[in-house]
Write a protein that binds this DNA or RNA. Structure first.
Length: 435
RNA sequence: GGCGCUAUCGUCUAGCCUGAUCUAGGACGCUGCCCUCUCAAGGCAGAAACACGGGUUUAAAUCCCGUUAGCGCUACCA
């Protein structure tokens, strides 16, 4: 039975590297029909908090990477660690060290060439005579990471330890603990690390390192996981878009890369856009509506739906809807005069056109049919003997305050007759000396 | 410093194990074109890499050695 675990330490928010480690553990477990477990390593009493722990567990839930068994906390297993440590002292493999009146326990480090076969790196050898005797119980009575980790993995019957490369050099130490305890060590797979865009270790300096950030930006869990899977893992084919289920099916430790990878925000955003696009209209609308609860209330269900669909191919994150469609949510308070001027020089008869258009459009009962508005606009252009775009571009600017938007007529039908004519009249009333 | 890991386009990667099929494939980003009411989306095209130096071999991105660089460990942090 394959059993793996993700063992975060609640000394901070779940970060990108942690998510990737959790993901690969999950993928391997599910691919092999095994179990994925979660263990909270809260042996650092100074830095561990319940708040971080809850946040991490909640984040894993959001990602869909749930533990198959009850979550284990190291702080609840102190008895066990002390018991094993005491046995080691009794057998003479560990000893007390008193410093500043505080007592800690150290395990004698066996001196030998320690080799193990890493599932990612292959054969790795260390000379353990270079290591100090390992502190196993700190003077505060808590076990050190190394000691607790080994005992838990053994007690939880973990078959494969899949963790970051930063633990590669720790592995021989762990192996020596297993050896003096007379326990069988699990198999190891050390994952390459995720670095910042500049190739340096991921840190706050890089800005977005916590998963929370990506949640708030409106990333889909599946898309984020998909991107992370692509870092340090490749397939023979050219497929890059994967759902979690597809990743589970295709995952293999053999395809894990040996070298560190840099996090590329652009590609991550692109993939999220791809996932958004692949969502069914219903799912997309549900996600957006949940994210934009407040804005939703400003529109009828039918209009809201129409609005969202207009931007489905244009948004990369749920949050970016605001960048694309901000003008739908709030009235325009001002226009960019530079663009205004450019438009004016391109279309000198702009005011005349718009006034004519308003005159024609106000006769329409409503703006519900974009084909109707389009026909009206093209007729108007024909009336002046100019191309339709000479009407469309100024109209777009007056309506959206931007030179970029989805199809103008669809946009107008979403905004509605009253709002559109209101904006146009406001625009025409602006800067009479320029117009 | 010591020990360990790693090294293909700017970035993520395929190829490396089992040398010849690699004038090195895909993706993001970038540039151009098409579509077109603008922008996106989509389609097409393009620029862009085997870190360096030795060696083995008829033949090396692929195997070996060294150099360099990056990263990790070297805590009573995990």
């Amino acid at each position: 039975m394959i059993r793996v675990r993700f063992a975060p330490s609640p000394t901070g928010y779940l970060h990108i590297g942690g998510v990737r480690t959790a993901l690969f553990n999950y993928l391997y477990a599910k691919n092999q029909g095994g179990a994925f477990l979660v263990r909270i390593e809260d042996t650092d009493r100074e830095r561990s908090t319940l708040e971080f722990e809850n946040e991490i567990i909640e984040a894993l839930q959001w990602l869909g990477l749930q533990s198959d068994e009850a979550i284990i906390r190291q702080s609840e297993r102190l008895e066990r660690y002390r018991e094993v440590a005491a046995a080691l002292v009794t057998q003479g493999a560990a000893y007390e060290e008193i410093k500043d009146g505080k007592t800690a326990l150290r395990m004698k480090m066996p001196h030998k060439k320690a080799s193990f076969f890493d599932l990612v790196h292959g054969e790795v050898t260390f000379d353990t005579s270079l290591f100090d005797d390992l502190v196993i119980i700190k003077s505060d009575g808590f076990p050190t990471y190394h000691f607790a980790c080994v005992i838990d993995d053994h007690d939880m019957q973990v078959s494969h330890v899949i963790r970051g490369d930063d633990h590669l050099s720790n592995t021989p130490r762990h192996l020596m603990i297993y050896e003096t305890l007379g326990w069988k060590a699990p198999k190891y797979a050390h994952l390459p690390l995720i670095l910042g865009h500049d190739g340096s270790p991921l840190s706050k300096r890089h800005g977005a390192v916590s998963l929370t950030h990506y949640r708030k930006e409106g990333y889909l869990p599946g898309a984020f996981l998909n991107y992370l899977a692509l870092l340090g893992w490749g397939t023979d084919g050219n497929q890059e878009f994967y759902t979690l289920e597809q990743l589970v099916k295709k995952f293999s430790l053999k395809k894990i890369t040996k070298s560190n990878a840099r996090f590329d925000g652009d590609k991550c955003a692109w993939l999220n856009g791809q996932h958004l696009k692949k969502l069914s209209d219903e799912d997309y609308i549900r996600q957006m509506s949940e994210f934009w609860k407040d804005e939703k209330g400003k529109f009828s269900d039918v209009t809201w739906r129409k609005l969202l669909l207009l931007y489905k191919d244009r948004v990369k994150t749920l949050k970016s809807l605001a960048d694309e469609a901000g003008y739908c949510f709030a009235p325009l308070d001002q226009y960019d005069m530079a663009i205004h001027q450019t438009l004016l020089s391109n279309y000198p008869r702009l005011k005349e056109f718009l006034a004519y258009w308003v005159e024609k459009a106000q006769v329409l009962e409503n703006f519900e049919h974009d084909t109707q508005i389009e026909q009206l606009t093209r007729d108007a252009a024909g009336h002046f003997g100019v191309q339709a775009k000479e009407f469309i571009h100024p109209l777009r600017f007056a309506i959206a305050g931007k030179t970029v938007s989805p199809g103008l007529f669809e946009l107008m039908s979403v905004l509605g007759k009253t709002e559109c004519l209101g904006r146009l009249r406001g625009f025409l009333a602006l800067n009479p000396q320029i117009l």
